[in-house]
Simulated scan of single mutants.
Amino acid sequence: MNYFQLPSQTIKDKSIPKKAFYEYTTSKQKQLFIDVVDKIKWQYKLASDTINLEGIEVQEIQVFEINLKQKKNIESVLPIIEKAIPYHIIFMISFNDEVMLYTSQKHAHPVNENNSVVDWIFKTDWFNRSLRKYTINLKESLDKIFSDFCFQLSNNSDPGSKKNLKELIEKEQKIQELKNQIIRLEAQIKRTKQFNRKQPLNGTLNQLKIELKSII
């Protein structure tokens, strides 16, 4: 199925054997591949030779569909595929009629050019395949195409925002950092019995929540 309704010249529709990635796995990850992943398909290739658009940071965008045997979280498997393929990848994880989209901004490893360093992950919750909530918009450049898609997946981007992807990632990281601080502080307050010690902790907690609300 041409889910993203992209031009015919971008369609690959080629199966990729799971064993192609086994050499990059631990024994536990390999077993997850075997138990959970049914099929891996290379669905689309977005590059200068398929859409006549180029990029500076993004040279190609590959779209893979991964069909699951079981509806399980396979986020420990996806970085393995990303490690094996240096290009930016959009994953469409499928189970029956449900879909989850996942991608990551990454850059080349400064020492090992065959590896990539993931800067940030963007993903959706599960949703019905019939709901075309997300699109790959072929416009301007490969960098713009990928950035636009990441903004769609982000829960923290402002509609019509003019920020670039780097700024969005910095915002996502700050939000996650504040959420982690709040979780740790709430746990500390719960453990603290003395009222006089709880007061300053509650004050700090309120400040963090105000800061988080101002960013979101």
Rank of each mutant, 00 (worst) to 15 (best):
M1T: 10
N2C: 08
Y3G: 10
Q5R: 11
L6C: 05
P7K: 06
S8K: 13
Q9L: 13
Q9M: 09
Q9G: 10
D13M: 08
D13P: 01
I16K: 00
I16S: 00
P17M: 05
K18P: 03
K18G: 08
K18T: 03
A20S: 14
F21E: 06
S27T: 09
K28S: 11
Q31M: 12
Q31R: 15
I34G: 01
I34V: 14
V36T: 14
D38E: 14
K39M: 08
W42D: 04
W42L: 08
K45C: 12
L46C: 05
S48E: 14
S48Y: 07
S48C: 02
D49R: 05
D49S: 15
T50E: 00
I51R: 06
I51T: 05
N52T: 05
L53D: 04
G55L: 02
G55D: 04
I56T: 14
E57Q: 10
E57C: 04
V58F: 02
Q59H: 06
E60N: 09
I61Y: 00
E65Y: 02
N67Q: 12
Q70E: 14
K71V: 03
K71M: 13
E75Y: 09
P79V: 08
I80F: 01
I80L: 07
I81G: 03
K83E: 15
A84K: 10
I85Y: 05
P86L: 06
Y87F: 13
H88D: 05
S94Q: 15
F95L: 07
N96A: 13
D97H: 09
L101C: 03
T103F: 04
S104E: 05
Q105F: 10
K106L: 03
H107Q: 08
H107N: 10
H107R: 14
H109E: 07
H109Y: 05
H109R: 03
P110W: 04
V111Y: 10
V111R: 09
V111W: 02
N112M: 12
N115D: 15
V117N: 10
V117S: 05
V118N: 10
V118I: 15
F122I: 04
F122T: 03
F122P: 02
K123N: 11
F127L: 06
F127N: 06
S130N: 12
S130Y: 12
L131H: 12
R132P: 02
R132E: 09
I136A: 01
N137G: 04
K139P: 00
S141A: 06
I145V: 13
F146W: 05
F149A: 05
C150H: 00
C150L: 06
C150D: 02
F151G: 04
S157D: 11
G160Q: 04
S161P: 01
K162L: 13
L165P: 10
K166C: 03
I169G: 03
K171C: 08
K171P: 05
E172C: 09
K174E: 14
L178A: 10
L178C: 08
I183W: 07
I183Y: 13
I183K: 15
E186D: 13
E186T: 11
K190M: 08
K190E: 12
K193Y: 06
K193T: 12
N196R: 13
R197E: 14
K198V: 01
Q199H: 02
N202Y: 09
T204D: 10
L205N: 06
N206V: 00
N206I: 04
N206H: 11
Q207A: 07
L208C: 09
I210H: 11
I210V: 13
E211F: 01
K213R: 15
